[in-house]
Design a protein around this nucleic acid. Structure first.
Lengths: 217, 217
DNA sequence: ATAAAAATTTAGACTCGTCTAAAAATTTTT
DNA sequence: AAAAATTTTTAGACGAGTCTAAATTTTTAT
């Protein structure tokens, strides 16, 4: 099978490819995996040998079909475990990622399948990210950033772009949870901060930095 | 922290020490961990340096207090995960061990604690083995082998000494599940096989080999 | 009690995944 | 269109954990 490390590289390549246009660079991978560019180069050679990526030296990298299949498998496992940790064990959405980073590598098809059933076949993880199908299809979701919503519109918080515990804890503190209704009352022309009303109750100000990382619709 | 591999060695030393008298030998460890004696020697040197075992060259090995504490932590995690897999996900007692071998190494105190609570603080794993306390105490249980029960006694199946899937599947097939009542009707003087009545219903013959591996109370 | 056998340890090598330093290719600047 | 800066790759090394083969220690048998 494939190693823990290989799985992490494939997953990371998938995420970076989804976020940027074009091929994924060695340096961006080094940054994401907290390693050095030299180590990444080595691993890319190995992954290319195994036909999991398309790799042209100096030109960046792209997943093969098989590579993407594996990446989505890992992401599926990760997100299903996150649902378990949040829904069944009561962990916060700011805590689940780190544990899921380990759990995602447990190698048993059957385990994920049964866990999925136990959880009632969830469609989204605790951050609102869609869970790939067992066959390895990533559902497409059409979300808008809160920073792009026009004044007067009411939307619902569906997910986040930024997944750091700090950001998620900030949202907890301000009450901007998944599913809550947000009415955009005003946008500050100077700093693009947004004045919103939450669940038809309290009003609060959201910085553009935050609004750009909140997915709604 | 300690590596996956170190945790496995400590766990294995604990099991072998519990099963045999005296110190644990290099060869027995090599057999259990499916490695070679040379590899075990190397690892024992490392574990001794870290003060996790008492080690005198050529003389075998014994856990230190700290080593035993760690071993029991791993065993606790293993058994709690086994309960989860069996009770919540519906896996058979012949299937849970292999997955728990991986899950036991997930490093989060909080995770085990919350999982334990979610499961209602179980005292025994699906094979009837006691779950060590959070503080690292192995509960003492007083079981008898079915092979040692006298004719006419009725006992209850409490656990197994042999954990192989083959043995457990055999028990499933014959209906000798955990908790079932067993009345010893007769013991064959020649081959020590036992004639038993199960749950006051069907009668069946149990080989001595099986009876020696069935723990009852 | 000593020779033979068995168990254990050491020596040296290999893979995986990482590193630093240096070399090579690409991109940017002038 | 070179030169400079940046990015990427290669070369060589290291630690963890394993291996085989050889050396050493302990145990068993004669």
């Amino acid at each position: 099978m494939h190693s823990f490390t290989e799985e992490n590289y494939l997953k990371t390549i998938y995420y970076l490819a989804a976020r940027q246009e074009g091929e994924v660079t060695t340096n961006s991978l080094a940054e994401m995996t907290a390693t050095k560019a030299a180590s990444v180069s080595d691993m890319l050679r190995k992954l290319a040998e195994k036909q999991l990526i398309h790799y042209r030296k100096y030109q960046g990298v792209r997943l093969t079909e098989e590579g993407e299949r594996l990446a989505l498998k890992v992401i599926r496992r990760h997100r299903i475990w996150e649902v378990f940790l949040a829904e069944k064990l009561g962990f916060g959405w700011d805590e689940v990622h780190e544990m899921a980073e380990e759990l995602e590598h447990i190698r048993s098809e059957d385990l994920v399948q049964k866990l999925d059933a136990f959880l009632g076949y969830p469609q989204f993880d605790p951050h609102g990210d869609p869970i790939p199908s067992p066959a390895g299809q990533m559902p497409t979701v059409e979300y808008t950033k809160l920073s792009e919503v026009t004044i007067g519109e009411e939307v619902q918080v569906m997910g986040v772009l930024e997944h750091s515990p700090e950001f998620l804890q900030h949202l907890d503190k301000t009450g901007l949870n998944l599913g809550c209704r947000v009415l955009v009352q005003d946008v500050n022309a100077f700093d693009k901060s947004v004045s919103v009303q939450i669940n038809h109750e309290k009003t609060l100000f959201v910085s553009n930095e935050v609004a750009r990382n909140l997915l709604v619709n």
